[in-house]
Nucleic acid binder design. Structure first.
Length: 247
DNA sequence: AATACGTACAACCGCAAGGGT
DNA sequence: CACCCTTGCGGTTGTACGTAT
């Protein structure tokens, strides 16, 4: 998939991951963690580059990932964050628990972008499209008052909820001030009244791991854990019991 | 049923940042 | 300070899958 390989190393596999490769990577990372991604493929017995392993793990295999489409609330949050942060997908993803930058980026490009255009909103500037057109017409007359998406959020951009939040002075002012806002999970703020974190759109870690535990089908020994020492086996057992402190 | 077209998403690439020597 | 290495990020692409003709 994608473009031609960046590295011409012989024996380095590219393209879609097989179940077998996934198994090996999961097995290795759950057992050893990832000290150095470059070393992971070698140690895990994979014919992949470290970059590919990291991507596969962070975007697809991580047990804390949420699967499925973004909820309405998540989508709104992405739109708002994008209006403030632009295409900084990793920053946006950091505020959406269980979602990856790649996933959000894809969702933006395939769903949200079109949705906004349909609503008459420019997905880049978050300005109304007709206003954009007028602005372009008069661009030569306009002064240079820089209007970044962050600074120029009109009240007519179609996202009332977002504006409400944006204008909410009770929010910590530092929240949006710099690149590294506090690790406050704003998604909770977006939950409609009465909903809690236990909402079904936020599955538990155990639920997220359910598919992982499906590996029990071929047994722990099939994953190669039979080479582990007692401590490691204990850890694995704890993991199987749903102890999230292990991974 | 076969083909064409459109969409969604996994995975790749190149580049930049950050840390170590 | 310069260089090297590793990691992370954002943009892009190819393919699988779904839908329309």
């Amino acid at each position: 998939m994608g473009r031609q390989p960046c590295c011409e190393k012989f024996g380095v596999k590219k393209g879609p991951w097989t179940a077998e490769e996934d198994k090996k990577l999961i097995n290795f990372i759950l057992t050893n963690g990832h000290c150095c991604w470059r070393a992971v493929p070698k140690l895990a017995g994979l014919r992949r580059c470290g970059k590919s392993c990291r991507l596969r793990w962070t975007n697809y295999l991580r047990p804390d990932l949420k699967r499925g489409l973004l909820s309405e609330a998540e989508e709104q949050m992405v739109i708002d964050l994008h209006s403030r942060l632009g295409n900084r997908w990793s920053k946006i993803a950091a505020r959406l628990p269980g979602r990856t930058d790649n996933e959000i980026k894809n969702h933006w490009n395939t769903h949200i972008k079109k949705k906004l255009i349909k609503m008459g909103i420019d997905p880049t500037t978050h300005e109304p499209l007709d206003k954009e057109a007028k602005t372009e017409e008069s661009a030569s007359h306009a002064d240079d008052s820089s209007t970044t998406p962050t600074e120029n959020r009109s009240t007519s951009d179609g996202s009332d909820l977002l504006n409400k939040i944006g204008n909410d002075e009770s929010l910590p002012s530092t929240l949006w001030m710099d690149d590294e806002p506090p690790l406050v999970d704003l998604s909770w703020n977006y939950l409609p009244a009465g909903e809690t974190c236990n909402d079904t759109s936020f599955p538990s870690w155990e639920e997220n791991c359910a598919w992982l535990l499906d590996f029990q089908d071929f047994g722990i020994n099939d994953l190669g854990f039979d080479c582990l020492n007692d401590t490691e086996l204990n850890n694995m057992n704890a993991f199987e019991m749903g102890d999230k402190t292990i991974a």
